[in-house]
Computed example of a mutant assay.
Amino acid sequence: MGVRPGAVSFSLLGPVSATVGGERVTVSGRRQRVILSLLVLARGRVVPVATLVDAVWGERPPLSARARVALGVIALRKAFRAAGHSGTVIVGTRSGYRLSTERAGFDVREFDDLVAAADRAAAHGEALRAGLLYRGALDLWSGPALEGVGGRLTESAAARLEARRRAVCEALLTVGRDLADDGFFDEAEQALRDVLRAAEEPGAAGPAAEAHLALGRLLVTLYRLGQGRHHLRAAAALGEERAVGELAALAERGSGAGEALELVPRQAVR
């Protein structure tokens, strides 16, 4: 489905950005990124000017801070118009500013909706559907949350978003294990690979070691079942000698020293 002409979308799950009908809005400088980030996080609620000043300058703002915030808002409005939006995206109020969100899309809101649906599916034992939804939520990320912004208020918000991403990784790890136990090996491998991919991002590394171990166990299971193609593909997902070494130790514990070397796909290490 294409993007509606004039539709505005905001992204915080990675570099802070906005688009109008698919056209990127030019957001110049840290001050504009901070202002836009706080407005997006508020999702249509008014953000007081004092909060914006604090977010940009902290405890020692210049005397001209309020005027500079106003100039930043003016620059953002011009950037949205230049990208093709004819209406008012940032609305001024007596105490601050808010976004006009009637036609706006938010990657954070989409993430929340996908995770909520995945949680419901998991609670009902629908592991396949839960895995697809969790993976869709992780696919929305393109880097660390609120990348390129900085500052006390936005860093706190970024930390909360990263904590939610780690929770989704942990939930997807559980789904991957359940799928493997139920014999859905392709789907289990994909879920575990997605956990590892997400864990490559700063702040999301928590479940990586467990995902490596779960994928190693899956590899051993596939090998024992004689599914060589799956065996090599899962081994390649481990992707490094250290992980394959951990797999060798796992195989040795599970099947005896004499069989362990046969379980390690040496050709997948390179």
Rank of each mutant, 00 (worst) to 15 (best):
G150R: 08
G151F: 13
R152Y: 11
R152M: 05
T154Q: 08
E155F: 07
E155H: 06
S156G: 15
S156M: 12
A157S: 13
A157L: 07
A158L: 02
A158T: 05
A158C: 02
A159R: 12
R160Y: 04
R160E: 12
L161W: 09
E162V: 07
E162H: 01
A163V: 01
A163Y: 06
R165G: 06
R165S: 08
R165Q: 14
R166D: 00
R166Y: 02
A167G: 06
A167K: 07
V168G: 03
C169R: 04
C169T: 13
C169P: 00
E170V: 14
E170W: 11
E170G: 09
E170I: 07
E170P: 00
A171C: 04
A171S: 15
L172P: 00
T174L: 12
T174Y: 12
T174P: 00
V175F: 05
G176N: 12
G176D: 15
L179V: 10
L179G: 01
A180N: 05
A180G: 07
A180K: 09
D181G: 04
D181R: 15
D182Y: 11
D182K: 13
F184P: 00
F185H: 06
D186I: 11
D186W: 09
D186M: 06
E187R: 11
E187Y: 10
A188C: 10
Q190L: 09
Q190P: 00
A191D: 02
L192Q: 05
L192G: 01
D194T: 12
D194Q: 10
D194G: 01
D194A: 07
V195Y: 06
V195I: 08
V195C: 03
L196K: 01
L196Y: 07
A198W: 05
A198R: 07
A199D: 03
E200H: 05
E200F: 02
E200T: 13
E200N: 07
E201M: 03
P202Y: 15
P202K: 07
G203M: 10
A205R: 04
G206I: 01
G206Y: 13
G206T: 06
A208V: 08
E210W: 01
H212L: 03
H212E: 15
H212A: 06
H212S: 05
L213D: 15
L213S: 07
A214S: 08
A214M: 05
A214Q: 09
G216F: 13
G216P: 01
R217Q: 11
R217C: 02
L218P: 01
L219R: 03
